[in-house]
Design a protein around this nucleic acid. Structure first.
Lengths: 139, 139
DNA sequence: TTTCCAATTCGGAATGACTACGATTTACTC
DNA sequence: GAGTAAATCGTAGTCATTCCGAATTGGAAA
C-alpha cells in the first residue's frame, strides 16, 4: 500500500482529506516500519508542531480499522506500519534495534485448524524478533 | 509446573517464602490460565486484602523472569500463567471469553530460520485466539 | 531462642500510553 | 460563498505499571 491508494481508500469511506492525515500517511509510507503514536508525533513535530495526541491516536486507529495500516503491540505500546499487500496473508520478522521488518511467508494455521477442530479460531499472531543483518554488522 | 516445584525453584534462587508468594502461586496453579495483575489482586482480595499492587507486579515479574510463569501481552495488559512443562517448547490457543488455553505443538521456526539465514533470531510469538468448545456451546 | 539484616511488603505518589470531551476550526457539499 | 458535519485542538481523565521511602519480616547466625 502506498500514500495515493491510502488516500483513495479514505475518500471512498467518506473520510476527509486533512493535512494531519496526509502527514501521518506520508511518514508511514516513507518509514516502512512499525512506529508508535509517540514516534509519529516526534517525527512530525517540526512540520506540524500543533498536531495533538488525540489526532494522532484517532487517525492511527481509524487507518488500522480500515486496513490501511497493520498494527501490533510491542513493549507495551501499539505500533503501526503501512499495510503491505505484495502478498496476501503474511507475518513479520521485526528488528528490535532499528524496527526494520521482513515479510515471512510461512504460517502454520492450516495445521492448527486441523489440530483444533472443535475450536472457533478468530485470529492469530505470529511474529519473530531479533537483529537484522545491518544492525548485526553495525553492532 | 506446580506449586511445590515453584517453591523449590524460589528457594534455590535465594528468594524468601512469603505468604504473598504462596498465595499468588497457589492461585495461578489452581486457575491454569492467563491472569492479569488486576485479576490476581481481585482473586486474592478476600484472603489478602492488604497485598499491595507493588507486591503483585514485582512477584509476577520475578516469577516470569525465572520461568516459573509464562507471560504474554493481550489487550494492553501483561498476563501470566503457570509455566506448562509437559512438552518443552510450545504455543497456546487462548479462548477470548474464559481465558482457557490449549497447548499447540506446531511451530514454524525451523522454516523461518532457514528463510532468514543472515538474521539473528532472539525470540518469537505465536498465539491463536478464539472460542473454546465450552464457550461455543454455551454462547 | 534471640538478634540482626537484607529482602520483602506496604501505601501512596509518579509515570506513560491512551482516551474522553467541550470548544473551535475546517473540508466538502450545495 | 454559506452551512454543516467532520476533524482538530487543548486539556483533563483513566488505567496499567513503576517507583520510593518507611515499616515489616523471613531466615541465617549468634
Amino acid at each position: 500500500m502506498n500514500f495515493d491508494i491510502a488516500m483513495e481508500r479514505l475518500k471512498s469511506e467518506g473520510f476527509k482529506r486533512t493535512p494531519s492525515r496526509e502527514a501521518i500517511l506520508r511518514l508511514l509510507e516513507r518509514e516502512d516500519r512499525y512506529l508508535s503514536a509517540g514516534d509519529v508525533r516526534k517525527a512530525l513535530a517540526d512540520q506540524h508542531p500543533k498536531m495533538s495526541q488525540d489526532t494522532v491516536y484517532r487517525n492511527l486507529s481509524s487507518f488500522s480499522e480500515m486496513k490501511i495500516l497493520e498494527e501490533t503491540e510491542l513493549g507495551g505500546e501499539r505500533k503501526f506500519r503501512m499495510h503491505c499487500n505484495r502478498h496476501g496473508h503474511h507475518h513479520h520478522f521485526i528488528c528490535m534495534e532499528c524496527g526494520r521488518t521482513e515479510e515471512l511467508d510461512v504460517c502454520p494455521m492450516e495445521q492448527v485448524s486441523r489440530a483444533l477442530p472443535s475450536f472457533v479460531i478468530d485470529d492469530h499472531k505470529f511474529e519473530v524478533y531479533g537483529q537484522c543483518p545491518d544492525c548485526r554488522t553495525a553492532g
